[in-house]
Design a binder for these strands. Structure first.
Length: 623
RNA sequence: GCGCCUGUAGCUCAGUUGGAUAGAGCAACGGACUUCUAAUCCGUAGGUCGGGGGUUCGAAUCCCUCCAGGCGCGCCA
């Protein structure tokens, strides 16, 4: 052996260590910190590669020469490689498949149902804040991202040994509920509320904004209602609590359909009683201060300029959230005072406001209370906020604020782009919105169309349609880089072929079907298993993919990007489908080949099922 | 106006953290089911990686600049 490879870790890691060790042994210890083992592009005809350019610079030697030196001096016998060659400054390693196969198989057999897992998170707790819908608004596709990305991260981190706490921070407090209470007080319709709670509440919310344009007294009433709510007024509390109940019941239905669950569902309201104390302490410590409201006209004209310059979109400055900020918020006199944390000296343009001039709280106030509670209750090493990218500035403010307040915990904003419609941003207020439940129903129906001719019971068909439809929707989201916006496209969200959730599920059912028909359920028991028999291109390609699984999971966790896993599983499925078409398993030419391929199929099935489960996607056994 | 993000095939997107010849899916065209499930597979075609400059052995990836789009910018969440 060239050096002592780390005994821990998966096969691929050991093989990489050996490749590195070989180069270090020949080129000297100095090489150790200047080389990295990479996957060469297909077509090179190698399995691993080490570029020598960085080392060449340090040693002032020609990389081609060094590569040749390694290729000449090395004796690959007894290593995991049967061929080590030099090419254009790279050292290329070709797996000795009789050796590596064995290693990959042993790896899998030894770890059993834990293949791919790790202990890197053991002893560490992570709190994930995800989904967090607002009650009184129907669940739109806009809420899909936080929900599925958060759930995937939750699963991934648990698999890596972390203790994970999922907290659905329901938006059930704030000025908007003042608006809904005021609206219900005037136009409330008991029947509509019973029939479809969140849609009825949405109607009230929309109507409120329509009428508030002509009638500013509505805004005043809304502020008063929220102040009453925050003060614990009976009538306000009773109504609010009813709205909350009804909405949560609807959300539950969607979470069931999606297969999503939480350890805690503590809404913003849960922290109501701690708010005064937080603000007081922030004042006492000198971090927060009283302040007057700056000149509104200046900022507003600036905004209009910006909107005017943008030109093309008339919707700008006029939609959803931003619409609430202008003109009609006249319930408070300009000379009144707010409590805020100034952040200008930290190069953050806006301060963080903790208390409005009417004495009520804001989002940030409740977030502070929430974080304090989480720290006290769960002692996390890390808190992840799976929240839209449009709140980036808010989170830089918020994180600076908690640092100033002396709350010591690592907080990370895990942002994602928004789902837009081709004609622009979604707006619940304008009714330009797609409800998640409608999308899921449609996707399930389409999946049902395909499965209806199968020779299966009606119940099986229904269950398959549900699993496939939901997978299509989830995968459409999870397979994309979360930081980018998604232009909503019915066709893509419900895709059942190509790069889609159902494609992966289908690959799994093919594997599962072979296993079922083989009658074998324990790969370790296969009598004629001989990994070295697997030398066909389709077979080794499949092994290569399977061997990558553990590190893909780690990368996904490191960047909080579930799409790494999605893309990997797609690639694995493609390779498996090629194998499936070209290599007969149950009718393989020899018993050795049959058992060996069977083991390969079992490994593939495991990785597909496990990988999909990390994404929060369930697999049917047949489809 | 200032700040953050994005720009890759007709469309929708990947791209192993700066590596070798930039990859998929959809759409188009041509092929493969008496076969372990054709929700599949094989093939053809499709590219100035937004434009320009720079950094170096090497750039879709890093820096600058311009263009285009998205998001945000003191009492919404």
């Amino acid at each position: 052996m060239y050096n002592a490879p780390t005994m821990k870790g998966y096969a691929l890691e050991k093989i990489r260590d050996e490749a590195r060790g070989i180069v270090v042994a020949i080129l000297g210890q100095e090489a150790a910190e200047h080389i990295r083992v990479e996957f060469p592009p297909p077509g090179i005809g190698a399995d691993l590669a080490i570029p020598l350019f960085p080392l060449a610079k340090v040693l002032r030697r020609n990389p081609n020469e060094m590569a040749s030196e390694v290729a000449e001096k090395v004796d690959p016998s007894g290593s995991y490689f049967d061929q080590i060659s030099a090419a254009k400054g790279f050292v290329n390693f070709h797996f000795d498949w009789t050796q590596c196969n064995k290693l990959f198989f042993e790896d899998f057999l030894a770890s059993g149902d834990a293949y791919g897992s790790a202990e890197i998170g053991s002893g560490k707790t992570v709190v994930i804040d995800y989904s967090a819908p607002n009650i009184a608004k129907p669940f739109s596709v806009g809420h899909l991202r936080s929900t599925v990305i958060g759930q995937a991260l939750y699963n991934i981190l648990i698999f890596l040994g972390y203790t994970v706490i999922g907290d659905n921070h329901i938006g059930d407090w704030g000025t908007q509920f003042g608006k809904i209470l005021a609206a219900y007080d005037r136009w409330g319709d008991e029947k509509a509320l019973e029939e479809s709670p969140t849609r009825a509440l949405l109607d009230l919310y929309v109507r409120f904004h329509e009428e508030a344009v002509a009638d500013p007294s509505l805004e005043v009433a809304a502020r008063e209602w929220f102040a009453k709510l925050e003060a614990g007024d009976d009538k306000a509390t009773q109504l609010w609590s009813r709205f909350r109940e009804l909405s949560l019941r609807e959300f539950e239905r969607i979470y069931d359909l999606l297969g999503v669950s939480f350890d805690h569902t503590l809404g913003e309201s849960f922290y109501n009683e701690r708010l005064k104390d937080i603000v007081q302490r922030a004042l006492d410590s000198g971090v927060a201060e009283w302040s007057t409201v700056p000149d509104k006209d200046a900022s507003r004209s600036g905004e209009k300029d910006a909107a005017g310059k943008g030109g093309t979109s008339e919707e700008k400055g006029n939609v959803d959230a931003s619409g609430g900020r202008d003109s009609t918020e006249t319930g408070v006199g300009d000379d009144e005072k707010v409590i805020l944390i100034p952040l200008a000296k930290y190069d953050i343009s806006a301060p963080l406001i903790l208390q409005k001039s009417d004495g009520t709280s804001l989002y940030a106030t409740r977030e502070l209370a929430t974080l304090e509670h989480r720290v006290a209750e769960w002692k996390p090493h890390e808190v992840l906020y799976v929240v839209g990218a449009e709140q980036s500035l808010y989170f830089t403010q918020f994180f600076k604020a908690i640092e100033l307040l002396g709350i010591k915990v690592k907080c990370v904003h895990v942002p994602f782009g928004m789902i837009r419609l081709p004609e622009g941003r979604m707006s619940t207020r304008k009714g330009r919105v797609i409800f998640l439940e409608d999308l899921l129903a449609e996707a399930i129906e389409r999946a049902g169309e395909i499965v209806k001719d199968r020779d299966l019971s009606d119940e099986e068909k229904q269950e398959i349609a549900r699993l496939v439809g939901v997978a299509a929707v989830k995968y459409a989201d999870l397979s994309q880089d979360r930081t980018k916006d998604i232009v909503f496209d019915w066709k893509k969200m419900m895709a059942l072929e190509g790069n889609s959730g159902p494609y992966l599920q289908y690959a799994y059912t093919r594997a599962a079907s072979i296993m079922r028909k083989s009658g074998e359920d324990d790969v370790g028991e296969l009598e004629n298993l001989d990994p070295s028999a697997l030398t066909e291109e389709e077979e080794t390609a499949l092994l290569r993919e399977i061997a990558r699984f553990p590190e893909v999971i780690k990368q996904a966790a490191g960047d909080y990007k579930p799409n790494y896993i999605a893309n990997y599983l797609f690639s694995l499925s493609q390779v498996f489908n090629r194998f499936y078409v070209n290599c007969a398993v149950l009718k393989a030419e020899t018993p050795v080949l049959k058992d060996s391929r069977l083991a390969l199929v079992a490994m593939t099935a495991y990785v597909l099922r496990k990988g999909l489960s990390l994404l929060g996607i369930d697999c049917p056994e047949k489809m």
